[in-house]
Design a protein around this nucleic acid. Structure first.
Lengths: 201, 201
DNA sequence: CCAGAAATGTAGTGTTCACTACAGATGTGG
DNA sequence: CCACATCTGTAGTGAACACTACATTTCTGG
């Protein structure tokens, strides 16, 4: 009894291509047509190999986390907690803007869908968030002028930081974190602003 | 020449309902059927009043930012930069987990689509992110045991914090922020971890 | 009370989507 | 070389989607 016709494509190479599509367009924004084209195969091959669209995503996530797992191991190998945080966050800044990859993180971006015809919606949302950031920056500029923030502080960077933490908390909340968890994040986050504040008189 | 039949629904009330649907399901995840049902109107009324789905989203965003604008005014009225940050971030922790509203922030959640049949994808992504957080927490527990972090520090909260900042940076990157902007955020963020570190010997 | 203007409800339209039936191709074991 | 198992390409399938034609209703101005 024969073993059947062998597969004509490399599953790992195909997964890399699928990962890129999910990364760039999100789970729902990625269509089977886009995926099969990027993977260089036809729909029946995709379904025979990965079950369905969600199975393909999970396989791509496995590959993604495996690739990043090696990097995370390096991160936690840093000598101090401070250095761990620095290595991780600075590394993320570089990785997530590396033109070799789609921007952002698959684990976040995968949930952001930009189906054909509504690619501008994410930018519309980003523009609204930027308004908040501007308002914060103006306030921090004033704080610096008043001597409330250190002369060496960067009000724009601080505003961006608070805005980024807010966004992170928003994603956490939407995936089920409770108020206490968010409050813990907020409490820690405030300490960075405190570190930029002038000493009390 | 008559003025036509008057509208039978209140546009602002309908917008509130639409905002809730976009907030809960994201832009693409929200279907016209869901929107019209929540708004208590039929599709032709929706299109006559708001143009199309994207027009409805923008109107809902306008209403959302208007509602939050009042709150942001209170936030920036705090006496110091530190208090501004605290008021904002603690307030967000409470608002985004308030059961009266969908979880998270419309300005972020609007871009996260969970169309019918794939509601579990965001949780799948969240679970993968939680793995990273666990790894960080373990590392920070060790750091505390080694005396690297202060005895009063909370390793789990620190890990959640670093994870939240990472997510926020991911969203920023995906909406166009460059490496330098992210690096600024990272640099500020590290200072909160530094504040929890024991003094150098 | 009547003519015109605008909103409403019903019932679709064409398109796109994830997914699959089917026939042919290509391999292995006996 | 033959029976069988598995992959491949073509060509669809039904369902869901955003959006709309149309007839009807409800109002205003004269």
């Amino acid at each position: 009894m024969g073993m059947g016709r062998p597969r004509e494509f490399d599953a790992e190479v195909a997964l890399d291509q699928a990962m890129e599509v999910f990364w760039r367009h999100g789970y729902e924004g990625a269509t089977i047509a886009q995926l099969t084209e990027a993977m260089g195969i036809n729909p029946p091959s995709l379904y025979a190999c990965f079950g369905n669209k969600e199975g393909l995503l999970k396989a791509a996530l496995d590959r993604y986390t495996k690739l990043r797992g090696a990097w995370m191991d390096e991160v936690v190998a840093a000598p101090t907690a401070r250095d761990v945080a620095e290595r991780m966050l600075i590394g993320i800044a570089e990785k997530q803007t590396d033109p070799a990859n789609p921007p952002g993180c698959l684990l976040v971006q995968g949930g952001i869908a930009t189906g054909t015809g509504s690619e501008n919606v994410p930018f519309e949302l980003a523009a609204r968030r930027a308004q908040n950031e501007d308002q914060l920056r103006d306030r921090f500029v004033r704080a610096k002028a008043e001597g409330d923030l250190k002369p060496t502080s960067d009000p724009a960077a601080l505003a961006r930081y608070v805005s980024a933490v807010s966004v992170g908390m928003g994603v956490m909340a939407s995936s089920g974190s409770d108020c206490e968890a968010l409050r813990q994040v907020a409490t820690v986050a405030v300490q960075a602003v405190e570190a930029q504040s002038a000493d009390r008189a």
